[in-house]
Structure formats: structure tokens, C-alpha cells
């Protein structure tokens, strides 16, 4: 499904040191091909969110080189935060329209794009609802619709489902995969859940904590579409074990 010939994101020896002296990333390398679904997996505080923010251009690397679509102007990157991060005073449609509004997009075209983005995440009946009237899962769907409304090449997701209950999370995982297959965008997905990363990704980058470095890269060659059958298959369990072991080694600071 991916076309590995075209690299869309490339981080080389990236380091990030905060003013407090905390080293979030150290000699961090990451290449993501166009159309790929890659997960960054690691314990909290391992710098995976920092890496994502650097790719988004929300944070700058202290050292190393960063290449990505962020330099190409607004709207090439969609970002989904851990919280839905919606404007409480605006309804679903207005929240989803925000990126287009900020780029002064054509009114009629942006209305069509908003309607389509809302329909894609299954919220067509809730366009006029305010965030506080929605469930946690629906707020997150709104947030995903907003990230997709500019049709970005790259979708960055920072533990988007961590605060949701398991049933909702499974549903959103499934829907995210369906969207990914439909739209063929590149996704970088940050998570601390082994099970979520195996279920979703083509490739998992396991990170060490403090400082954040790449510990191992594990390919998950299971075919898509993946569904509940995959989630309960021995194959899935096997991948989870492999990734789990890599993660515990990474946390123990061992060598692969």
C-alpha cells in the first residue's frame, strides 16, 4: 500500500533539549514514506510527543535536520491532540471549518469540504451540536474531521484515543483504518499502547525513555483491511508479544 520510494518525513540526528535541561530527544532518526502508517511507541516522557511536535513545526529541534511537509505552508499537516481541543463556543461545523477559515478559503468550497469531513467521521447528524453536547468519542471524531478538512498529506496523532474507554477506542481504531485506506494519507501515530500500535500500524518505532531514541523498528506485515478478526487472531497476539518484549527491553535500557 505504501510507496516507499517517496519519503515524506525525514528526521536526522534530531536532538531536543528543553530550557529546564531535560533531554527529550537525542540523535533521533525517523523516515516515513508517503502513505505509510507508522506508530511511535514508548512510555510517557520518552519524547515521542516532542518528536511529533517537531515534525509539525510546533516545536523546533535543538539539533539535527528535519524535513517534512510543514515548510510547504499551512494545511499540509493535520494534527490531532490528546485532548479533542475544540472551541467550546463553536458547533461541530464551525470547529471543523476553522483551518479553512484561517486560510481564507473560498466560502462555497469550504462548506462542501466541511460537510464531507464531518460525514467521513460519521457525525453528519451532529454538525450543529456544541462540543459539550457530545460524548468523548464524538469530540475526538470532530477533532479528526478538523485535521482532515484541509486534505493534508500528513496526519499527526498524539495519543488521540488515550483518554477514551476501550469500546470507543476500538471503534475509533477501526474507523481510523477505514479512513486511512480511503484517503491514503501518511499517518504518524503516537501511543503508549502496544495493542493499539500493532493493530493500526505497518511499522512501529519503539523508543527508549530519557533521552528519546529509536530502540527498534518493527514491521507489522499483516494485510489490511484489519478488523475484529485480526484483533483476536494468534498472529496479532504474536506481534503484540514481539513488540511488548522490545518495549520492555527499551525501558530497561538494554540493547536490541
Amino acid at each position: 500500500m505504501s510507496s516507499p520510494d517517496k519519503t515524506i518525513v525525514s528526521l536526522r540526528n534530531v536532538g531536543k533539549t528543553f530550557e529546564s535541561g531535560t533531554v527529550a530527544l537525542d540523535r533521533f532518526n525517523l523516515d516515513v514514506g508517503s502513505g505509510e502508517f507508522v506508530s511511535l511507541l514508548g512510555p510517557s516522557g520518552c519524547g515521542k510527543s516532542s518528536a511529533l511536535r517537531i515534525v509539525a513545526g510546533l516545536s523546533t529541534a535543538s539539533e539535527g535536520s528535519v524535513e517534512g511537509p510543514g515548510g510547504a505552508g499551512a494545511g499540509h499537516i493535520g494534527f490531532v491532540f490528546q485532548e479533542p481541543t475544540l472551541m467550546p463556543w463553536a458547533d461541530v461545523a464551525a470547529n471543523v471549518r476553522l483551518p479553512l477559515k484561517l486560510s481564507d478559503a473560498d466560502e462555497a468550497r469550504s462548506r462542501a469540504a466541511v460537510t464531507q469531513a464531518i460525514a467521513r467521521v460519521g457525525l453528519a447528524d451532529f454538525a450543529r451540536a456544541y462540543p459539550r453536547e457530545l460524548s468523548g468519542g464524538m469530540r475526538m471524531r470532530t477533532s479528526i474531521a478538523r485535521a482532515l478538512v484541509t486534505e493534508p498529506e500528513l496526519l499527526l496523532m498524539d495519543e488521540p484515543f488515550a483518554a477514551l474507554d476501550e469500546i470507543t477506542r476500538f471503534k475509533l481504531n477501526n474507523d481510523l483504518l477505514v479512513l486511512w485506506q480511503q484517503l491514503r494519507r501518511t499517518v504518524i501515530f503516537v501511543t503508549h499502547s502496544v495493542f493499539e500500535s500493532v493493530y493500526l500500524s505497518q511499522r512501529i518505532v519503539v523508543m527508549t525513555p530519557r533521552p528519546g531514541r529509536v530502540f527498534a523498528e518493527i514491521a507489522i506485515p499483516a494485510p489490511y483491511p484489519r478488523d475484529e478478526r485480526f484483533r483476536t487472531s494468534p498472529e496479532y497476539a504474536g506481534f503484540c508479544r514481539t513488540v511488548s518484549e522490545a518495549l520492555s527491553q527499551a525501558m530497561a535500557g538494554g540493547v536490541p
Binding site: R53, A56, G57, L58, G73, A74, G75, I77, F79, F81, E83, T85, M87, W89, A90, L98, P99, K101, L102, S103, T150
Partner: peptide
């Protein structure tokens, strides 16, 4: 104002005026 919302406005390269009008003032209402 929610700092993630500010980050979101940054991501879409919003001008100071847009941040003030579309984010800060409604949030401060």
C-alpha cells in the same frame, strides 16, 4: 486560552489578529 488551541492556530499559520479575534476574545468572553 487552551495552549493546544494556540498550537493549532500556529499550525495553520494564523495571524495575530486571527488568534485574537477567533480564539482569544471568544475564550475570554
Amino acid at each position: 486560552v487552551d495552549h493546544n488551541l494556540i498550537a493549532l492556530f500556529d499550525l495553520y499559520k494564523a495571524s495575530r489578529w486571527q488568534v485574537l479575534w477567533n480564539l482569544k476574545l471568544p475564550a475570554a468572553l
